[in-house]
Design a protein around this nucleic acid. Structure first.
Lengths: 157, 157
DNA sequence: TCAATTCTGACTATCTTTGACCAAAACAAG
DNA sequence: CTTGTTTTGGTCAAAGATAGTCAGAATTGA
């Protein structure tokens, strides 16, 4: 059993059934597993990504922490499909607007929320000197990030 | 719980209900929390800034005091200030998160909306290979675009 | 063997707390 | 009034406490 796998399981156990988030101290966890603290970052970076349905928050300094939030129930939510399949790694503004319109119509999000998301990824917002390709990638990331937030809110509601 | 967090809560409790301002003695408060007096200044500087919606006044010498005033502003005023003056052409994720938290707390936007906006401009969302400078510029554009959408919705409502 | 994955450690970034020294206001004595 | 003393609050730099990053070493699996 790899160290990374052990740490992954450990965290996922803490996140089991009821609990949807855990807060831990990087150094303590590293101590517990007898490894370098940066190993924890590696595990988080490779096994608790947005695409995996997790969001990581942290703070440095005294009283610092790492918080891991599970936002998508494996495979069962509709948003999970959108986040992982339909949007993918790049999406055009037109496609995104169409998608948001559908979500609003299906009342997955409010009209206000859809408008905000649309504003976030409008060509005006993305008017920076990078290739269109990169803008589409950026739009996909931002959109997925926002929908993940929505999924999290739905779950908490 | 961090000392700073305790002091912050304590002050916010004093300000919570009807009161829009409190006056206190720096040394007494420090004594109460068993910390260095300058710790109080640290808390004020990091958690009671103008961005957070507070104004600090103080006097030295006999009978000296520190007065913390919670500023009240209309949602539209606040949005206009952020869009036209505060955000500018670049903003870091940390600053943006602080501003969004404040907007939610002042109920200019809902917590859901704030979370969505936060997600839109998080570093996770902006993880593309461009210089940080450009990310900050992008974040500013996207944020202003979203806040403009919110302002428009308010007007139409 | 060799490429991908895992792991580590040195260096960096950020947040908190403290303490020494500074500045201003009030007060008291002359 | 003027000046010295006392009482406050302010500033800043340094130390302490965490977490993040990244290049390269170690390991693993094909």
């Amino acid at each position: 059993m790899r160290l990374s796998d052990s740490i992954e399981s450990f965290i996922k156990t803490l996140l089991s059934q009821e609990e949807t988030e855990v807060e831990l101290k990087r150094n303590e966890l590293a101590e517990y597993f007898g490894c370098a603290p940066s190993q924890i970052n590696y595990v988080l970076a490779t096994r608790f990504t947005l695409d995996d349905g997790y969001v990581i928050e942290s703070r440095r300094g005294g009283g610092g922490y790492i918080r891991i939030v599970r936002v998508v129930e494996s495979g069962q939510q509709r948003l999970a499909y959108l986040i992982n399949e339909r949007i993918g790694t790049a999406i055009s503004e037109e496609e995104a607007v169409r998608l948001l319109g559908q979500l609003a119509q299906q009342q997955v999000v409010t009209v206000h929320e859809a408008e905000i998301m649309r504003a976030a990824i409008s060509s005006q917002a993305l008017a920076i000197p990078v290739p269109d390709q990169m803008k589409d990638a950026l739009r996909a990331r931002s959109l997925k990030s926002m929908l993940t937030a929505v999924a999290r809110q739905n779950r908490e509601a």
